[in-house]
Simulated assay, not measured.
Amino acid sequence: MRILMVALAASMLAGCAGSVMDDSRTKAPTQTLTSDKPEKVVAQCVQFAWQDEAVFGVDAGAYLQPGKKSGSTVYTRSAESFVDLTTGVTGTELSYYAQRDDFVAKRRLAALATCL
């Protein structure tokens, strides 16, 4: 019964995050970046960097999933910040989205930049 409750809660959160991400993708990204590194390596690095409790405290959750069309997406709880990563001609292309322009969003962008 507990497993069923956890699975239901996780699917509900994923649905909410998905609609927030879809809405954000209709607008221009907060920041667009590129990297020479492979997409999977950058995605794993961003996920790890965003999970640093010393930097983000108790809100240090970061999740990695396949991208909407291709590549990968790394996102935080409620998709307050997320990054779409795709393989481009010159390397990995990153589109960073933040729901708010605040200190935490800037800190997540800085952590992301360390993975380039």
Rank of each mutant, 00 (worst) to 15 (best):
S19M: 13
K68Y: 10
V83I: 11
G67I: 04
R25Q: 12
G71N: 05
A113W: 00
A62T: 05
M5I: 12
Y63Q: 10
V42D: 04
K40G: 08
V89T: 14
A98K: 02
P29A: 10
V74N: 03
E53R: 12
M12L: 15
T114R: 15
T34V: 11
A7M: 08
Y75I: 02
K40D: 13
G18F: 10
S81R: 04
Y97N: 08
C16W: 14
M12T: 12
D102F: 00
S19Y: 12
Y63M: 09
W50Q: 04
R25S: 01
Q65W: 02
L85C: 06
S24N: 11
V42H: 07
T73H: 05
A79Q: 01
L33N: 04
Y96T: 03
V104N: 03
A60N: 12
G91P: 05
M5A: 15
Y63W: 09
T87K: 14
A10E: 08
E53S: 14
S19R: 07
A113K: 15
D52E: 03
T73Q: 06
A17T: 09
V83R: 04
T87W: 02
V41T: 15
P66K: 10
M1T: 09
L112A: 11
A111K: 06
A79W: 01
S95W: 01
A79V: 04
A79R: 02
L112I: 07
A9L: 14
A9N: 00
E53M: 12
Q47M: 15
V89L: 08
G61D: 12
W50R: 02
V83T: 12
T86N: 11
G88V: 02
F56T: 07
D23E: 15
R108V: 02
L13E: 09
G18R: 14
W50G: 02
D22T: 09
T87S: 15
K27Y: 11
S19I: 11
K27Q: 15
V83L: 03
P38T: 09
L33S: 07
S19C: 08
V58C: 00
G71D: 02
T90P: 00
V20D: 03
Y63S: 12
R108F: 01
G71S: 08
E39S: 14
S78W: 11
G91L: 03
Y75M: 08
T92A: 05
V58R: 12
K69L: 11
D36I: 06
T114E: 13
Q44E: 15
S95P: 03
A98G: 10
P29M: 05
G67M: 06
V55S: 09
Q44W: 00
M21Y: 02
A113I: 03
G57S: 06
R77D: 08
A14D: 11
